[in-house]
Amino acid sequence: MASPAMTHHSKKSLIIGILLVATTLRAPFTGLAPLLATLGHHLGLGTMQVGLLTTLPLLAFALLSPMVPYLTRYLGLERSVAVALVAICLGVMLRALGTVTFLYLGTVIIGAGIAVGNVILPSLLKRDFVSILPKMTGAYSLTMGISAALASVLVVPLATHLGWAQASLSLLIFPLIALIVWAQQLKGRAVTGLSRPAMSSNAQIWRSSLAWQITLFLGLNSLIYYVLVSWLPVLLVDSGFSATKAGSLHGLLQLATALPGLIIGAVIARYRDQRWLAMAMASLWVVSLVGLWGMPGWAILWVGLGGIGSGAAMILGLSLIGLRSRSAHQAVALSGMAQAVGYLLAAAGPAAMGKLHEQSGSWHLPLLFCLLLAIAMMAMGLLAGKNRLMDE
């Protein structure tokens, strides 16, 4: 159930708003990945310069996430979400202007907006949907994955007919619709942010071993995921796939991350201890990476398994933020920490794996490194999944 003070209409409106906001937290960023080679050629960018288009948003996620609790303190949760949506809209428009300067500037602004949304949504669910938190987390993760898959599949044909800039601009539809609908949440709302005493959670959370276990479980999952989001099309083309087929499989990765949202929330809710779930999710990454290494011709299977494991792990990790925290204030602090560390790891991943591929001349070493990270993720899941609450 949602907060008792909410009417049926306001609860329904909030759910729709949250799901539409979720469509903006991945698609405007990952939807550009299938166009990186095209825009790089068009603008004369080198490999490292193109790689920055993946790294910059992740760095924005990492650097800004710890600051979001302070933003919500002054603006409140609803107004902070509105600011995030405006930033994403602005960034998408700037990125599509077709120059290198605006390409990078727009990318950073998109990253800043997504960072705010990423941190706030788990705390909104903790505040208003605490009794159905895993199910709501699954629902918004499903929406996020479907929108990202749709973006990845459609941008290539759009770019073929309209050019990369116009195809990139088409991603504006996600934050624009979300902003229009979310405006309903601002009417008659008082600013309800974090109080000064609650802000102490933001500092204390960094000393919690449980917080670090949840953070690393999410962070390692994000690192592996964004390595594949960045390099899967290139890896597949190097393995003999056409660019169109590689783009479709990239879309499959996005779609597969959404599928667990159909059931995993209900599964998580049935158990107080989630250790075996966390281990199973990380093990799907292990199978996927071994498959891509040894039998890339079966990529449709390996990509699907990896996407399912990653999506399920993300839902579990985000659910753990609410399940292991004692209040919405603590959830905001933990979410900020998890997003910051997780995306700092993810930001380093694509560039590091690209450099490793460049030096070794194959994808074997990058995949092996990701495999070791997946095993470490299993260990973090075993620790974070144990049923307990964080200290105040």
Rank of each mutant, 00 (worst) to 15 (best):
S283N: 11
Y225S: 15
M279W: 12
G265H: 07
L255R: 00
S195F: 11
L249A: 06
L172D: 07
Q185M: 13
R196Q: 14
M199Y: 02
G163W: 12
G163R: 08
M279L: 15
L169D: 06
L284E: 00
A178E: 06
S222L: 10
S242C: 03
M199N: 04
M279H: 01
G240R: 08
S283Y: 08
P175H: 00
A280R: 03
S222Y: 12
S195A: 05
L277C: 05
R270H: 13
A183Y: 12
G193S: 01
A183C: 11
A269H: 13
K245S: 14
L194M: 14
Q204R: 15
S200G: 10
Q213D: 09
D273P: 03
R275T: 10
L249F: 07
A211E: 10
M199Q: 15
S200L: 10
W164A: 10
L194W: 01
A246R: 02
D238N: 15
A198M: 06
I264S: 03
G240K: 10
T244C: 03
V237T: 15
L176E: 01
W276A: 13
L249S: 08
T244A: 15
S222F: 13
A266L: 11
A167G: 09
A282C: 09
L172V: 14
W285G: 11
T257W: 04
S230I: 05
V229A: 15
S168M: 11
L249Q: 03
Q213A: 13
G219W: 06
L232N: 07
L249M: 10
L176Q: 06
L235Y: 11
A258T: 04
R270V: 04
L179T: 00
G188R: 09
R189T: 12
K187G: 06
I173F: 11
K187A: 13
K245L: 13
W212G: 03
Q184E: 12
F217Q: 10
G261M: 07
V227W: 01
